[in-house]
Computed example of a mutant assay.
Amino acid sequence: MSSSLRRGALAAAAIAFSIASLAACGAGNNAQTLEIKPDNAATTVGDIKVQNAVVITQPDLESTGPAVISATLFNSGTSAQTLDAITVDGAGAAELSAAKGKGKLTIPAGGSLVLGGKDNATAVLSSGRESLKDGDAQKVTFSFSKTGDVSLQAFVVPAKTYFEKWGPTEKPSTPAETSPSPTESATGSATPSGEASASASASASESAAE
């Protein structure tokens, strides 16, 4: 093979390799993982890994409704553990509820537990915007039956865009229109009735006098 043909073959091979590499970058390594997602807090202590931890407030800045903690908990150990408590600095302890509303929050051996979102376990903070500010990083402590306390700094975000489906399910209620009090109603109806009674009495007296 002449030197010119060899150079042409090498160039073609280089181009083919480049195209293959670009295709691998676009479709390989699970292409979905290339999507832009929030960089949420994660940490590992012993057999427990806490991933994607975030505190989610109501979407409305004026709202005083509850906030929630969303996270995925992994247990790499050989025995199950329970999540006994979650506390957030400045906001207190969260109320924990299992996915079906009963029982403890258990992370099975070699399994995981999801907090937040539809049909998942929940961790609700009664004080939302009163003590939490969007954009801040708040210390969150997860207490497990065997591993003990696992703490990390989690971002506080509103229940919008990506976080909407993981946010609080309990929305703040709109204040109802103010209705008249019983005293006001009684006063309002008593006056016309009193005037009518007085007129009737006066008419009866005049008729009798005639």
Score class of each variant (00 low, 15 high):
Val114Asn: 06
Phe144His: 02
Leu132Gly: 02
Leu125Gln: 01
Ser127Asp: 07
Glu130Asn: 03
Gly135Val: 07
Lys118Arg: 12
Asp136Glu: 15
Pro108Gln: 08
Ala137Tyr: 14
Lys139Cys: 03
Ser143Phe: 12
Ala123Tyr: 09
Val114Tyr: 06
Gly111Ala: 12
Val124Leu: 02
Lys118Ser: 10
Asp136Gln: 13
Lys139Gly: 06
Asp119Ala: 14
Phe142Trp: 14
Ala109Cys: 04
Asp136Asn: 15
Ala123Leu: 04
Gln138Ala: 15
Lys133Trp: 09
Lys118His: 13
Leu125Tyr: 11
Ser126Gly: 11
Gly111Pro: 13
Ser112Glu: 09
Phe144Lys: 00
Thr141Gln: 11
Ser127Gly: 02
Ala109Trp: 06
Ser126Arg: 14
Val114Gly: 00
Val124Asn: 00
Ser127Cys: 00
Ala123Glu: 14
Ala123Asp: 14
Ala123Thr: 08
Ser143Val: 15
Gly128Gln: 04
Val124Ile: 15
Arg129Glu: 02
Ser131Asn: 11
Val124Arg: 06
Asn120Met: 13
Phe144Glu: 05
Lys118Asp: 09
Phe142Gly: 01
Ala137Trp: 07
Ala137Phe: 13
Gly128Pro: 01
Pro108Ile: 07
Val114Ile: 14
Val140Asp: 01
Asn120Phe: 12
Ala121Trp: 07
Ser126Pro: 02
Ser112Cys: 04
Ser126Met: 14
Gly117Trp: 05
Lys118Thr: 13
Pro108Arg: 03
Ala109Tyr: 05
Gln138Ile: 12
